[in-house]
Design a protein around this nucleic acid. Structure first.
Lengths: 328, 328
DNA sequence: CTGTTAGCGCGTTCAG
DNA sequence: CTGAACGCGCTAACAG
């Protein structure tokens, strides 16, 4: 079932069908009705794939490139429910506009981006890794195809960003902790994402603002598995590295840390810098800071409609104070 | 950057480049090397979109249709971590074979399927709803494009299925509960998916096998929100509907039920028919039955490679016995 | 308002 | 082993 079949059934040319499909006003109401009826009855949907072909790199005479009906979504960790939520929201948003989503999870961002660039209207890159300052494949791609970074940041023309204000979250949190006379805050970093490095940045900023120096022993990269976290914490205790509060780059990591510390009998404030149902369910309930996911998704979809002006949107974060902060 | 650019840079025709791209042996080693070098250096990736066009419905002379490099993935609830895991696994598997994923989350399955059918090599439909016996859009689509149902089942040519054996899980579970002299098992159904109706089917089977009749008051459809579950359970108690164990179609639902029952002081066995980190973290820890997700994903990917012979694969399930079963 | 036609980027014949 | 030419389904110019 293609555009030719529909055209034939209606006794019109494919161009007219195409116009109806694309809401081009230059079709008489009567013809439009008739064609829509046939389309509906035949349950016809134009091929998202073919739609992309023609318009690819074609730049219309006016100078502006015609939008492609497909958008590339790059997300290397769909396992993270926050990322999955963003993907789902983006897909729904685009589908409602008649566009479709090409999904990639390629961990090699350079390959993934170049595979998508030029073939899609835009690329949404969710939870990207922290990146070297210049000479960035991301930036190169963005010259060809608008890029929307979610939970990531890079300042370059053609690149938009929407992200939770994790840096701000960490700063405020650390101020609160310092006020409680706790000065040695352990920071467990469970990834290499941009968000993670923002958190570390916030950590350093907060210490600097308080006139304290960061003990590098307290900022630790760990693999995000319960076992690794456990051995990591154990090693710290054996080495007599002291700390009086724990920040974790995400809530799953925080849960692991919580279990590990429970075994040692240590009762410290533990905070996850991402929230989750599991954190809420844990006992004692895990305190987490996070932005409203729906707000993040809404902002992403909105920015998707106005990619021409590259902007950096920060979604405010708030602390969901639960047992591991209140009672510790 | 397209195949022509590469061809030109190499001083060959696009056909030769295409052959290299597709591992066609009919290229001299020297030429191949040279072309690969250029491809690599230019960081060129063939357009996944364009690749799909030509081969669409084309049936090669041999009789077998040429496989399309894109696969459609339909998943209406990416929010469910199990579904997200399957999507991620499928994407990775296909990417490693040079294929790409067109993602749809359209809740209107008929539209979604017809949009994909004929334009992709296959459609993976994750967690589909329970369906009427005949006259099924799914079956119609499958005549054109092979269909792989994950967590769903329909017996039709061209349709493969891979799913957790939830029916078996429920049957065994109920037998265990009955042995404990608990006869009024509440079944909370939090969805309309095929998996849910399989669970209900298992419930009925188990009761029948035990020579008991099902009290329809005990099989209840609820909306899967904490509030709805809470009011639902309250209403039951007010109406003096008694029950001495609770089965829930998924672990989030089970968590809600657990909280609601905790408030009433009732201490009953509660089991979720899906597992999750949150269930493990809850206290008391929630007992759940589930299959190994990795096994499910592996089976899906494997079946994806052999879609020609439609088959129904059941992944065994096992009980993760925790507090809400052991101590109740 | 409508039809005709030229590509979009690629895989695939079929001739060399 | 290689190249020229066609077609995939669709959109956008252009011509009526």
């Amino acid at each position: 079932m293609n555009i030719y079949d529909i055209a034939e059934k209606c006794g019109v040319s494919i161009a007219t069908v195409s116009r109806v499909l694309n809401n081009n006003p230059n079709v008489s109401a009567a013809t439009r009705e008739r064609i829509l009826a046939v389309i509906n009855e035949a349950n016809y949907t134009p091929s998202a794939i073919a739609r992309n072909l023609g318009n690819g790199s074609a730049v219309s005479v006016g100078g502006s490139a015609t939008p492609l009906p497909a958008v590339g979504v790059l997300c290397t960790d769909l396992t993270d429910p926050r990322n999955a939520a963003v993907v789902a929201a983006v897909e729904t948003h685009l589908r409602n506009k008649g566009k479709s989503v090409l999904l990639s999870g390629d961990p090699c961002e350079e390959k993934a981006l170049s595979a998508l660039a030029g073939h899609v209207e835009a690329i949404v890159y969710i939870d990207p890794p922290a990146r070297p300052k210049a000479d960035d494949p991301v930036i190169a791609v963005a010259t060809a195809t608008p890029l929307l970074l979610v939970e990531g940041y890079v300042n370059a023309p053609g690149v938009s960003c929407v992200r939770a204000d994790v840096r701000g979250a960490v700063i405020e949190l650390i101020q609160q902790i310092l006020r409680r006379q706790r000065r040695r805050i352990l920071m467990l970093v469970g990834g290499k994402t941009c968000a993670c490095s923002e958190m570390v940045g916030g950590y350093e900023d907060a210490y600097a603002a308080a006139g304290l120096t960061v003990d590098p022993e307290l900022v630790i990269a760990v693999e995000n598995t319960p076992e690794q976290v456990n051995t990591c914490l154990k090693r710290l205790l054996i080495n007599r590295v002291t700390f009086d509060a724990v920040l974790c780059t995400d809530s799953v990591l925080a849960l692991s840390a919580q279990k590990a510390l429970q075994r040692t009998g240590l009762n410290l404030p533990i905070i996850g810098l991402t929230d989750s149902l599991a954190a809420r369910c844990s006992s004692p309930a895990l305190t987490c800071a996070d932005c409203d996911i729906d707000a993040l998704c809404r902002a992403v979809c909105q920015r998707l409609d106005t990619l021409s002006q590259a902007e950096d949107t920060l979604i405010p974060t708030h602390l969901n104070e639960r047992d591991t902060f209140r009672h510790a």
